[in-house]
Design a protein around this nucleic acid. Structure first.
Lengths: 406, 406
DNA sequence: GTAATAAGTCAAGTCAGTTGACTTAATAAG
DNA sequence: CTTATTAAGTCAACTGACTTGACTTATTAC
């Protein structure tokens, strides 16, 4: 008789609590974006009443997220008391899992990296790898608690970044992916092992998250981060939030076919990733000194390397045009796992950019700019994810089903 | 002394009113998505309390958006009283502006087209065109008020769809765009002339909006609508909302370069749009009978047409792979300004699809499906936009700056 | 010195969702 | 047939977060 076990689908409702949570996020976001602001400033900016802001700020101060600065006189009227974010208000740990090594960092509320450490990973052995990782995280937490006594209490989560895409049926033997790791119940194991909420992003998404928190996408609501690493991906900031797609695999531009007619199936990643550079230069990617080696070649202007740069830049220029055409971002940010010298060569070689709808008369941001070039940027992005999840204003944070705010 | 005229940027805050507005939208959305539901059902689905839902439903009934149905007995316990949406609860007008003609429709709350009418547009004469359009809308409103006495009071807005992209510096003489119209202050003129709130979308976005309200994307939160018309575009449903990009031009896939190395600048639109078909068949696009003519050719299996279909399908297959790779949607919907027979031929010719990250073991929706094939679908999509803006749950509807909820 | 201006507080008010007990109406079980 | 169980829905008091409008405080401009 009870034959309607069809699940009813609906957006979650909300209540005062949801509104209040949102308003707290809005305050923190405004302070992050504009620097110290007075209660009156915040009231104007957020369209709330002075009184509402006052109550929220009181509460945030009590909770240790903001502190008042010296009152400033700026004309007629009572001087205002600006508030600023307290970096020690929250911490997060970020974890980068790569093919041969893993890096972990701890960041604070404003995205400053406080602790970093790395370790080698046993190849194709997730179980052993997780032991290494848990040790790494344990060490990070110990050091962190030396920096701030409150750190454990204020740890909002663990962000993980690793190469995507995730959850596919295997097709071909795709060396870009890490098959053994894809099958391992990584998030559950890490959550159990650390007691923290765990989030997952691919490398490019992590870069975008980092750029959004502390980099070129800070305060930019529509930005795409083109990540050139061992693989190639695009991290999408759409409407001020990282976009993940239906299955968390949005932005896998490295797998874009270079041409409809070139039926050979050549994709961007085959031609413009660091993997292709290593192949071109006949280098071993698992070699520990490869970063410095490539750095030296780039600084020296090695002709073989420059030849690859020129060829890759052609494809990357195309991919920027594609990104602009499909996403219409305010800016495209080039990030890379490569040494800064090489990244700059690539950026240079990509100019002039191809004509696209991004060539508007009213531009304020550059069409293409260099993002964070630091081998730790992915780990930073991983750590930025829990911070963003906990403190950035977002639709899902207002709703009642406050679970796993994907 | 007052040198800080730097604008403070912040997300808007919210209050009970915002929460309440959201909850009303959530109720309407749930009824739209699931069909009639009881208050208890709604409470479970939205995570609100029975009492809260009861109050909201009372109010919605008083306002004429929902009505109770017969109580139904479904097991032990008091029978439940399902509520359903009242189609006459709201109306919207949609306007399609094309190169040679304009179409206007009126729809109701559930997306049913009630009135339709079309007219020719004087070429390259926006001022004259607007007079035609205002006459058309006037006629629609008169007919609409004959259908429902409340129609004027319940008219939530005017949606406009026209070929994009919008707001560019001119580059080249792009015949796909409508230069004279781009410069004309269309929205302002229409707003003044009709007294309605006016929204703008490009053709592909309109198709996506229609698919979301009443088509294949109904209830799907991540879908991309590939629109093959005189031009080619992609309408993006991301996180359940139409995505517009930084400048309202996201999804202009017709301008995607087919290859990085093919430096000739060939873009998708040159090869797979109806414009290219007309060129291939040596037809005049401004010919009034062209739709029926092409329909007949498609039905008859004309070899010239089939040759174009095969060639175009190759590029379109590539574009689907591209869309899947970059957006990771749950499904791709093929829509077209073309006759259904032709659309089906194209769909057929696009199979088998190219390998992509969309080939997942856990798929529930088809990778590619046919959407609404009806020459009026763009006008329907245009009309769907105000309905969606007024009634769909969305972040911007919760915030306090309830102005021009882009 | 007084007026003007702006930051910020006080205290009461309001509104929408919450809580928990209660009523109503049906089926299942003995 | 009676009673227990289950579920929908209402009643009425409660709560919490933002709003309102008057007020205080501190500074500059005239």
């Amino acid at each position: 008789m009870v034959n309607d076990i069809r699940p009813i689908r609906a957006t979650s409702g909300t209540n005062q609590e949801g509104a209040s949570a949102h308003n707290r996020r809005v305050m923190i976001d405004a302070l992050r974006l504009n620097g110290p602001l007075s209660r009156a400033d915040l009231a104007r900016a957020t369209q709330l009443t002075k009184q509402a802001v006052s109550n929220i700020i009181d509460e945030l101060e009590r909770d240790g997220f903001v502190v008042p600065l010296e009152a400033v006189r700026k004309g007629r009227g009572q001087p205002s008391t600006p508030y600023r974010l307290v970096p020690e208000g929250a911490f997060a740990i970020g974890l980068q899992i790569d093919r041969h090594l893993t890096r972990a960092v701890a960041v604070d509320l404003v995205g400053t990296v406080l602790v970093r450490s790395e370790a080698n990973l046993p190849p194709d052995d997730p179980a052993g790898g997780v032991r290494v990782i848990l040790g790494l995280i344990e060490g990070i937490r110990t050091e962190l608690s030396r920096i701030s006594a409150q750190s454990e209490k204020r740890l909002v989560g663990l962000g993980v970044a690793m190469p995507g895409p995730f959850g596919l049926a295997e097709f071909g033997d795709n060396k870009w992916m890490m098959p053994a790791w894809q099958k391992f119940p990584l998030l559950e194991t890490l959550a159990a092992g650390t007691g923290l909420e765990v989030g997952l992003q691919n490398d490019a998404a992590a870069c975008a998250t980092a750029e959004r928190l502390v980099g070129a996408a800070h305060g930019v609501d529509h930005a795409v981060c083109l990540y050139v690493g061992y693989g190639i991906g695009a991290g999408l900031i759409l409407n001020g939030e990282l976009y993940r797609g239906g299955n968390g695999n949005a932005g896998e531009i490295g797998m874009a076919l270079l041409s409809p007619r070139g039926a050979d199936g050549t994709v961007l990643e085959h031609r413009a990733s660091l993997a292709s550079l290593y192949q071109h230069l006949d280098l071993d990617p698992s070699d520990a000194g490869i970063y410095e080696h490539v750095d030296a070649l780039a600084m020296a202007g090695d002709p073989e390397l420059l030849a690859w740069v020129d060829a890759a830049a052609q494809d990357l220029r195309w991919s920027v045009q594609l990104i602009e055409t499909l996403f219409d971002p305010q800016t495209v940010i080039l990030t890379s796992g490569a040494p800064e010298a090489l990244a700059r060569l690539i950026l240079q070689a990509m100019h002039p950019l191809l004509q696209s709808i991004a060539a508007r008369p009213d531009r304020t941001l550059p069409r293409l700019q260099l993002g964070i070039t630091d081998p730790w940027s992915i780990a930073l992005g991983a750590a930025s994810e829990p911070i963003s999840r906990a403190f950035d204003p977002r639709f899902s944070a207002i709703l009642k089903n406050r679970v796993g705010a994907g």
